[in-house]
Design a protein around this nucleic acid. Structure first.
Lengths: 330, 330
DNA sequence: AATCCAACCGCAAACGTTTGCGGTAATGTT
DNA sequence: AACATTACCGCAAACGTTTGCGGTTGGATT
C-alpha cells in the first residue's frame, strides 16, 4: 500500500492538488460540497500530511530539541515530562538528545539540531562546556536557545534556572531558625557554578545572621563519597546535630550513612536537603527539603521559548522561586 | 544571515548544485581538488544538509518515536536513556511522546508519528488500550512497531518485555530457599496482565514446591495503599516474616511502613522485590531484588527494530532474563 | 446584450536535496 | 586523422506541500 498524498486524493476525486490542499484547510475558495468530499476521502484513506514536505515548504518546523547530560536524573525527568506536555498542547514535538556530559557528544547534538532545523533548543550544558559559541551561532540562524538548570556564565543568552541563591538562603535560614549549632553541610563538585552559588549564599546567610553556629563544609562529587564522609563524621565523638545536603545525590549517600548508624531523624539528627522532591519521600519521616521543581522550571522555560519565537530578542535570566516542603526530618 | 544551502555553496564556487552535493559525499565523479574546495567552504559556512529536504527526497527518515504513558518512571527512564544512546550511535534520533496513560492522547501520538513519517515506533501502551488496530495500520505502511513493557494481548505484533513469569518464579524460589513461612505478598492492580502473570507464576511455584508456606496476597494500586495495608499487617500480633513487593511503587509504600515500625531487615523482617534497581539502593541494608532492567530491554527492543527495518516480517515476542541482585534485606 | 461580480478551481513555482543520464574536454589508441 | 576512453561536471526531474495568480463558469446588474 503506497503513501496517501494530496496527489492521490486529487486523482481519485478528479480535482487538482491545490483544491484538495485548500479544501483540507477550509479555505474560502472551496465550496462546502467539495470540502466534504475531500475530507471524507481523506478520513477514509487516513491521510496525514507529510511533515517533511510541509516543513520544507514552510521553512519552519514544530519540533523542539532538548539536550541534557543524561535523562537518568529525577530533575531532568520531571523537567522533560512537563515540557513534553506543554509542547504537545501547543502541537510541538520534543527531540531528546543526551550529551552524556561530554562536550564532544554535545557538539554532535547541536549538529543534529541544525540538520533537523528545529524550532528551538532547550539545553542543560555539560560540566565541561565552557565555549558556547556553537549555541550562539544557532541564535544567528534564528533558532532560540534556552539554557536551563546548568547554564553557562556569559550574559548574552537566555537562561532559566532554579534560584540557587534563594534556595541556599532559605536552607540556611531554616537551620538558623531551628537553632542548629553543629552543622555538617555537604555540597557537590566544587568546580560547578551551581555549587559555588549555593555555597556562597549559604555561608553569607550565616555570617549575616551572626548565628554563632559551627559550620563544617565538605564537597562530595558522588553519592558514594557523601556516604563515606558522613560515615566518618558520624563516628566522631561529637556528632553533628544536623546534616544539610545540597542535592538529591548527596542526600542519598547521607541517608545511607544515617540509616547505617541507626539514627532516626529528627530526634537523633536533623536532615535538610535541596531536592527535586522524589527522594525525600522514601524515608521515614520524610525529609524536609527546599524544592527545586523541574515542573516549574519547564513551564518557565517553555513560556520563554514561546516569547523568543514571538520575537523577543532580549536576553533574560529567569529564576523559579524556591519553597520549603516540611517532611519532619528536622 | 540566510540559510546555507547547496545552491549557495554552488553559486559561491561557480559549480552546479549536483557537483557540490556529490563532492560532499565523496562521489567518484568529482576531482579531488573540487572536493577540497567544496568541503572547505562547507566547513567555513557551517553547512548542514536540510533534513526535511533529504527525508522528503529519500522518502525515509532517521527518527524513531517512543510512546509511553509517562516519562516520570524509573523504568522508562532507564529504557529511554539506553535507547537514545543506541539510537544516536546508529545516527537515529528519538522522539518522545507521552500518552498520559490516556488512549485518546495515544491516538494523537500515533497521528504525530504518521505525520513525521518516523522510521519506527517503540510503544508501551496505556492501561486501557485494547484496540491496537491503529498500530497495525502503521505496519501496513512499513513503519515497524515494537511494543515493549506494557504489551497488548494479540499475537500479530512484535513484543519485547521483561519475563514476568520467570521474575515471579525466581522470586518465589528465593523465598522458598530462604525457608520463609509467613509471607505477605503485595501485587499491583489486579486487572493488569502484568499483575496476573506475576501472581500466577508466583502462586504456581509455591504449589509446585509444596512449600507449606502461609501465603497472604494483597493488591495495591498505589504506593499509598501498599503503605496502609502494610501498616495494618505489621500491627497484627503475628507479623509476616517476609514481605514480597511486585514493583518499585509497592516497595516504596512497604518500606515506609517498615521504617515507621522501626523494623530493620533482614533480622526483624525480610524484604524482597521485583524492581528496576534504583529504589532498592536507598535503604540500609539495600533491598534484595529481582531485576527488570530497562537498559537490557532497550537493547533488545532496538536490535529487534533494526531487524524489522532490515526486512524481518516475523512477529516475535522477546523476553529479557531476570537476575537476582542480593542486597541483604532477606 | 454587454458588463460585472462572485464562487470555484487549476497552473506553476518554490522549498533543498538526490541521482540518472547526458555532455564536454583532454588524453590515449589505432 | 579518426575513434575510444577517461575524468569531470551540469541538466532536469522528483519527493509532497503551499500559495499567488489567473481562469472559467453561472447568474445578477446595467
Amino acid at each position: 500500500m503506497s503513501e496517501v498524498t494530496l496527489k492521490k486524493l486529487a486523482d481519485l476525486l478528479n480535482l487538482s492538488i491545490s483544491t484538495v490542499s485548500r479544501a483540507l484547510k477550509d479555505h474560502d475558495d472551496i465550496s462546502a460540497e467539495t470540502k466534504n468530499r475531500v475530507k471524507e476521502l481523506a478520513t477514509i484513506l487516513d491521510y496525514e500530511p507529510n511533515s517533511y514536505a510541509v516543513n520544507l515548504r514552510n521553512n519552519f518546523s514544530r519540533e523542539f530539541a532538548v539536550i541534557i547530560p543524561s535523562i537518568a536524573n529525577d530533575f531532568y525527568q520531571s523537567f522533560i515530562s512537563s515540557l513534553e506536555k506543554e509542547a504537545r498542547l501547543n502541537s510541538y514535538s520534543l527531540f531528546i538528545l543526551q550529551s552524556g556530559d561530554d562536550p564532544q557528544t554535545e557538539l554532535e547534538c547541536i549538529k543534529r539540531c541544525k540538520q533537523n532545523r528545529v524550532a528551538g533548543i532547550f539545553v542543560s550544558i555539560t560540566q565541561k562546556t565552557t565555549d558556547i559559541s556553537h549555541f550562539l551561532k544557532l541564535e544567528d540562524s534564528h533558532i532560540p536557545v534556552i539554557f536551563f538548570d546548568k547554564v553557562p556564565a556569559p550574559d548574552a543568552c537566555n537562561k532559566v534556572c532554579v534560584d540557587d541563591i534563594s534556595a541556599a538562603l532559605l536552607s540556611a535560614e531554616t537551620l538558623i531558625l531551628k537553632k542548629k549549632k553543629n552543622i555538617l553541610a555537604i555540597f557537590g563538585n566544587e568546580q560547578l557554578s551551581i555549587t559555588q552559588k549555593r555555597l556562597n549564599a549559604f555561608k553569607d546567610t550565616f555570617t549575616r545572621h551572626n548565628a554563632g553556629a559551627c559550620l563544617s563544609i565538605y564537597h562530595a562529587d558522588t553519592s558514594a563519597t557523601a556516604y563515606q564522609y558522613t560515615m566518618e563524621q558520624l563516628a566522631q565523638p561529637q556528632q553533628p546535630d544536623v546534616i544539610f545536603c545540597m542535592s538529591d545525590e548527596i542526600l542519598i549517600g547521607v541517608m545511607r550513612a544515617v540509616q547505617t548508624f541507626g539514627l532516626r531523624p529528627p530526634a537523633d539528627i536533623g536532615i535538610l536537603a535541596i531536592s527535586e522532591g522524589q527522594i525525600p519521600t522514601f524515608y521515614v519521616p520524610q525529609i524536609t527539603y527546599i524544592e527545586t521543581s523541574g515542573f516549574k522550571l519547564a513551564k518557565l522555560a517553555f513560556s520563554r521559548m514561546l516569547a523568543c519565537l514571538a520575537g523577543s530578542t532580549a536576553f533574560l535570566e529567569l529564576k523559579t522561586e524556591s519553597i520549603i516542603v516540611e517532611g519532619g526530618s528536622i
